[in-house]
Simulated assay, not measured.
Amino acid sequence: MTVAVAPTRPVETLIVQAKELLGVEYHLVDCFAYIAILHPQFGAAALVPDDNKLDAETGASELNEAFKKAGILTKAIPLALSATSVEPPILIRSGPQMATDIAVTMGRASVSLQELSSDQYTAAKVALEKHAIERRKRVLDPTLMKMIQGAIAKVTEGKRIFAGGPEVSVEEVVMPEFLLPAVLLAAAENWTMPVAAQQGKGGFVVHMKADDSAVLMFRVSHIEVSSPLLLMLPLVDVIRRSKRGGEYILDECITRFGNFITGHLTPELETSLELRIATSS
């Protein structure tokens, strides 16, 4: 089993198809998890490559926040694709019919919007490009993931690792949708006081997303670190503390993660989670 860091994305295929179908009247930007679509008259949309309406709504919210920061008076709507069913105004048809549904749906949603001037349209495109760059930075860094895996492999030295009963591999421990959320939470809790004592220096931020297919119902989506070394220290410490005899038992990490989620469960936490350990400056 390998670490799932940045698999080939359906968005990459979708944006090629969308550009061909929509033509030059629409400006399309790859925002990694979705496509940002911009039209001077019809406004904007966040298009996801599947039927996940929640992801589409999250994308639209992100785009609207980017427009707001740039002072642009337009609005993004969520769009999701389905090959089997259509549920306007979010779920539209995939394939060749996609272009028609995008134009119709965006057109209907833009009735109350004012058409963007040439300058505003240019500013909106710039805002989307900046947003896309920032969003891509929030993707898990493959180099950092390799460092995490290497650090845990070094400290465990090939010894057996167990989590909730079954034996697991180092690769499974660092998988974003497997045990990494629990290990990072334990590291974050242990590291909070030392970082606070240093006035926030050496902190890190862990972003997680709700994922029904993940072992712990959350997957790590991004890690911000002031220094990779200062992330490795608390991570390695957590693993070392889990040693029992000649084996490593990660049950406590899983229990702590479950307790944290239960104790902090809110409507917002049901979709995303951010562990901010002081600051990451």
Results as ranks from 00 to 15, higher is better:
residue 1 M to K: 13
residue 2 T to L: 07
residue 3 V to C: 01
residue 4 A to K: 07
residue 5 V to Y: 00
residue 18 A to K: 04
residue 22 L to Y: 12
residue 23 G to Y: 07
residue 27 H to I: 00
residue 34 Y to W: 12
residue 35 I to S: 00
residue 36 A to T: 09
residue 39 H to E: 02
residue 39 H to N: 14
residue 42 F to S: 03
residue 43 G to H: 07
residue 44 A to Q: 10
residue 46 A to M: 09
residue 47 L to N: 03
residue 48 V to H: 05
residue 48 V to L: 08
residue 48 V to A: 06
residue 49 P to F: 06
residue 49 P to V: 06
residue 51 D to K: 10
residue 52 N to F: 00
residue 52 N to V: 11
residue 55 D to T: 10
residue 55 D to A: 14
residue 57 E to N: 05
residue 59 G to Q: 05
residue 60 A to K: 12
residue 61 S to W: 04
residue 63 L to Q: 06
residue 65 E to Y: 12
residue 65 E to C: 00
residue 67 F to M: 14
residue 74 T to K: 08
residue 79 L to K: 12
residue 80 A to M: 09
residue 87 E to C: 14
residue 90 I to F: 08
residue 91 L to E: 13
residue 93 R to A: 04
residue 93 R to S: 14
residue 98 M to Y: 15
residue 104 V to S: 13
residue 104 V to L: 15
residue 105 T to I: 07
residue 106 M to Q: 12
residue 108 R to G: 06
residue 108 R to V: 14
residue 108 R to A: 13
residue 109 A to R: 09
residue 110 S to A: 15
residue 111 V to A: 13
residue 116 L to Q: 02
residue 116 L to V: 00
residue 118 S to A: 14
residue 119 D to S: 13
residue 119 D to Y: 09
residue 119 D to E: 15
residue 122 T to N: 09
residue 124 A to Q: 05
residue 124 A to P: 09
residue 124 A to C: 07
residue 125 K to P: 04
residue 128 L to T: 06
residue 128 L to D: 08
residue 129 E to Y: 04
residue 133 I to H: 02
residue 134 E to T: 04
residue 138 R to K: 11
residue 140 L to A: 00
residue 143 T to W: 05
residue 148 I to S: 01
residue 149 Q to H: 03
residue 149 Q to K: 08
residue 155 V to L: 01
residue 156 T to L: 01
residue 158 G to R: 07
residue 160 R to H: 02
residue 165 G to I: 07
residue 166 P to I: 12
residue 168 V to N: 04
residue 168 V to L: 02
residue 173 V to H: 01
residue 178 F to V: 13
residue 180 L to W: 11
residue 186 A to D: 13
residue 187 A to P: 04
residue 193 M to Y: 11
residue 193 M to E: 15
residue 194 P to W: 01
residue 196 A to I: 13
residue 197 A to Y: 08
residue 199 Q to V: 14
residue 208 M to D: 13
residue 213 S to Y: 15
residue 215 V to I: 15
residue 219 R to A: 05
residue 222 H to W: 07
residue 223 I to Y: 03
residue 223 I to P: 01
residue 225 V to E: 02
residue 227 S to D: 14
residue 230 L to M: 06
residue 233 L to T: 05
residue 235 L to E: 02
residue 239 I to G: 00
residue 241 R to T: 03
residue 242 S to C: 11
residue 243 K to T: 03
residue 245 G to Y: 10
residue 245 G to T: 10
residue 247 E to R: 07
residue 250 L to C: 02
residue 260 F to H: 15
residue 263 G to W: 10
residue 266 T to F: 10
residue 266 T to L: 12
residue 267 P to N: 07
residue 273 L to E: 03
residue 276 R to A: 15
residue 277 I to G: 03
residue 278 A to D: 06
residue 279 T to G: 04
residue 279 T to A: 01
residue 280 S to F: 11
residue 281 S to K: 14
